[in-house]
Write a protein that binds this DNA or RNA. Structure first.
Lengths: 247, 247
DNA sequence: CTGTATACTTGATATCCGTCAAGTCATCCT
DNA sequence: AGGATGACTTGACGGATATCAAGTATACAG
């Protein structure tokens, strides 16, 4: 109706059906026929450069986000002002599921590099989830595995040595790159040593030392943020070594 | 119709509307009118004595559980055979939300004392959640805060000293007892020192030492599993002490 | 290009907590 | 009651990792 071109604002509505991540992301839970209803709700295209804030803890929580490109870290700040990195999110992953309860975001989210996201308004998603059983189911699954992975992380922090933690992180990143059909053995770390240390409950210096130790042992080849995994099997061994020795 | 008494098998259907926990548990999310639909689905009355298994990791997951009485611990076992206590669940709390994804339970659950639970079959709950918006919403909230609390726990493990961890646990238990209108300052620990240690990523000996240190400082009065909190405010200070010193 | 801030690495020292060992206490079963 | 088993406590010691300190490399702004 009128002004066919002038009225078309910058594309906001998502185009899930032609997104390269549709097989990894939310659309996988929705039939071809219903994908349009998803697209009606999702706001696409917000983009952030390195270091920018996507949302901040205790800001009013309205949306979850699907990562389209780049990488994100989430952090929480406790009452004493300490910051803790709670997770890293890569393309195809959904972030912010912890913020559905309460009214405000439970963490802050920052772009680690040039990053774009799709926004999933929580209230709209809840309504749609009631209409699309597979979508509701998928949300329950996503949240459930978020609980699981954060329990696994707690376990890593409470029971494992510095070497095991770092080996685990490298392997986790590796398999998440592989999922996206990228090389599982050669990639750039999207985050700084500092973030790794914080995430793993270690000091930066320890991360640095372990990385060079791994390098000397021929496990990896690392220069700055460029990493090459030279011996994945041995890394997997390391991720279990100490626990094994005990038994 | 017919056989009015002979056919009434032992009561399995739940009676949420007359449960003393209904204000804390699932029913809070459901209007008076719909509570019967909840009762149709929930299986009440399974009961376990101390040490018994409620479900085991990697067993087929069919249900979540609401704790009616007693106390439960959940544990996960990693590939190297180490056991990690991931949580304690008290009356009014929902357990097993981490097991919705995947087909099998993500953890094992054991009764810490004489315990009774109500069983929430996952598939039925999903169907009902689609019909009762407030129920769906509540489930999302529950799962979301489960993510949050397990992130908080990870933070506790990675950044806090033994004293801080133990103070935090005592305070957490305290407020959960208070929620049930029990004394927040005088209660019995439902779990062994061993479980506390494991949950907090410490050695039993450390837990023991810190407890006696707290006792000597006049913070608590503890004999075995009986605990009295003598100075809650100071305990809250302790739960933050070290972090504060750093800044 | 040049300087400066930031990221990263490496070394020396300190410390919290785990491990080992032994002892005390509580509980349970016959 | 009595013995045994497990739960808890207490002490001595060592080790993994944090902290402190300094140096090197990288990134970025002008």
């Amino acid at each position: 109706m009128g002004h066919p071109i002038a009225t078309t604002r910058p594309q906001l509505k998502a185009l899930c059906h032609q997104c390269s991540l549709s097989k990894l992301c939310l659309p996988l839970a929705v039939g071809e026929d219903d994908i349009e209803r998803l697209e009606d709700i999702i706001k696409q295209g917000r983009s952030f450069s390195r270091g920018e804030t996507i949302f901040e803890q205790s800001e009013k929580a309205t949306s979850c986000f699907a990562v389209r490109g780049g990488a994100i870290k989430t952090t929480i700040i406790n009452k004493s002002g300490d910051e803790q990195v709670t997770g890293f999110y890569l393309p195809g992953e959904i972030m912010g599921l912890d913020s559905i309860s309460g009214n405000s975001y439970a963490c802050s989210a920052y772009a680690l590099e040039r990053t774009s996201v799709c926004e999933l308004p929580i209230d709209h998603m809840e309504v749609l989830a009631r209409k699309l059983p597979t979508l509701q189911h998928h949300f329950f699954q996503l949240m459930s595995s978020e609980i699981q992975s954060s329990q696994q992380h707690a376990m890593l922090l409470s029971k494992n040595t510095a070497e095991e933690r770092i080996a685990s992180l490298l392997l986790s990143l590796s398999s998440r790159f592989e999922r996206r059909r990228l090389s599982p053995t050669r990639f750039n770390l999207p985050m700084a040593r500092n973030d790794i240390a914080n995430y793993l409950g270690l000091a930066v210096e320890t991360v640095s030392r372990v990385m060079t130790r791994f390098q000397n042992q021929g496990l990896i080849n690392a220069k700055g943020r460029e990493v090459e995994l030279l011996d994945v099997e041995l890394l997997q061994e390391v991720a279990l070594t100490f626990a094994r020795c005990k038994s």
